[in-house]
């Protein structure tokens, strides 16, 4: 079991597993931000943010109607950029 092909297959698998767990970590962090900005600031935490006023209302209202959408956009573009970089780090990008 020490021939060349099996070794490189093992090395490949190891880096594939590392790639996948790095990906899952990035997804988890992104989804936490996703949830805090929409369900959190927009709905559940709105009473806590009511002291911060924005254009005739409070910050929670702004998050619910516009802020969350802007955060979603930023998250998707961040993820695409980060993953395309990660693909290269682990050498799994498309030819």
């Amino acid at each position: 079991m020490t021939d060349h092909t099996s070794q490189s297959a093992q090395a490949g698998q190891k880096s594939d597993a590392g790639y996948w767990s790095a990906n899952v970590r990035i997804i988890l962090v992104s989804l936490v931000i996703w949830a805090i900005c929409s369900f959190g600031f927009g709905i559940l935490l709105r009473p806590m943010l009511s002291g911060i006023s924005v254009g005739g209302t409070d910050l929670g209202f702004w998050f619910a109607q516009q802020g969350s959408i802007l955060v979603f956009l930023a998250l998707i573009f961040f993820y695409a950029w980060r993953m395309n970089k990660l693909d290269k780090e682990y050498g799994v990008e498309e030819e």
Binding site: I27, S30, L31, A64, S68, I69, F72, L75, I76, A80
Partner: peptide, 19 residues
């Protein structure tokens, strides 16, 4: 305000889709 659900819901799904 209560119908902000449509705004967040129909855009937030794209994050799930993309990730």
């Amino acid at each position: 305000y209560d119908n902000s659900t449509f705004l967040m819901g129909w855009t937030g799904g794209y994050v799930l889709l993309a990730l």
